[in-house]
Nucleic acid binder design. Structure first.
Lengths: 203, 203
DNA sequence: GGCATATTAGGACAGGCGTCCTAAACGATG
DNA sequence: CATCGTTTAGGACGCCTGTCCTAATATGCC
């Protein structure tokens, strides 16, 4: 088995453990046990625990980037793309109820630790934010695109956090439906831009 | 200085440190240093670290309970009470941008640690949820009260998480205004109850 | 003032952590 | 088969953690 394969296995196991148990709470021994290699052997592939974290973040970034690119290929309507993003909390509802949002929880933890990799992890949020902004721009709301993108992100984070805390699956479906209804006002495309974003969607 | 005073100081310092650095990341030495007592002396007041965590959670519960009781005394209109709840993210915007939501981040961390005190910490969410539910019931939406309460909670968590990640204060104000506009549809009181909560507020 | 109690300080202890080192096993190549 | 670089195992190291113990100090009551 090549070193690249082992390295990928380590990143994969670390990714899962960091997500489920948190970064700090996951020990080297735990990762080693998951990959079935010895602890000492670790430092042949990674020179420190922070190094593994960087690799995990890079892998997540790459994974999400590919996912968004796939969506761009599969959905031609930007409104459908946004809907698909909103549906994430439904698609991943099992994991979200058990472990929360992989992006939000990691970012929060690294912030509390004062970890230098926080900026890298923040790139995940930035990736989604920029992608959503682009979709809203294509929908014909360039001026409010960023605010709308942030609103959708906040929706996802809020739903994930509470679905995690209460293990409430019905709540997820309710909020997703509410969000779809809210979005329909924008994807209709016949709305005039009004000052104070969101006002025209609620009125 | 009495033992009760010292105990209160310990809880106060631990509360702040748990909030800013996280529970696991906060060591006994750090708390001791903050309170200016020796590490060993700790176990005269608390028999374990988990014991301090329980005391901190109990203190937060009591603090929030008193806050909500105060609001009930100061605001007679349940709509105003809900507005005040929504304004929390503005009132505490400085801390939220720096450390996130005290309730959400603690709950998430304890869940990842598999800590037994998670249920106690979840009581904070339950406290707010029940209080909001009561306010929406008084507003005349008893059937949807719980779903509406959860929606407001999700709003707070989503805003707090993203305001924390991006350190974006304008975003907080935008989302709060959007929420106020959404709420105005309910506090108007002239709406007929429709199946699928939220639909009548968006249409 | 003397005494019992309440409170404190400081170090000892075992265990787990991330890190590092060294030697052995492996696999491909001549 | 021999030899090389690659990959591995396993343990040692120092550090920090939560916990506990004991002796010293402060406090309040007769």
């Amino acid at each position: 088995m090549g070193a690249a394969t082992t390295r990928a296995h380590i990143v994969e196991a670390a990714d899962r453990l960091f997500y489920r148990q948190g970064y700090e709470h996951t020990s080297f021994a735990a990762i080693a046990e998951a990959v079935h290699i010895s602890r000492g052997n670790f430092y042949y592939h990674f020179k420190s625990k922070d190094d593994i974290l960087s690799a995990v973040i890079a892998a997540r970034l790459e994974s999400r980037r590919r996912m968004l690119e796939r969506w761009e290929a599969e959905e031609t309507d930007p409104a459908d793309r946004i809907r698909r993003f909103v549906e994430i909390v439904v698609t991943n509802r099992a994991d979200i109820q058990r472990y929360g949002c992989p992006v939000g929880t990691l970012t929060t933890e690294l912030a509390k630790l004062g970890h230098p990799a926080l900026d890298d992890a923040g790139g995940l949020f930035t990736l989604f934010r920029a992608w959503l902004r682009e979709q809203f721009t294509q929908l014909g709301h360039p001026a409010q695109a960023d605010a709308l993108a942030m609103h959708v992100l906040a929706f996802s984070q809020g739903v994930a956090t509470l679905a995690h805390a209460f293990r409430d699956e019905d709540f997820i479906h309710r909020e997703v439906q509410r969000m779809h209804e809210w979005l329909s006002a924008y994807s209709a495309g016949a709305l005039s831009a009004a000052p104070g974003d969101g006002a025209q969607a609620d009125a």
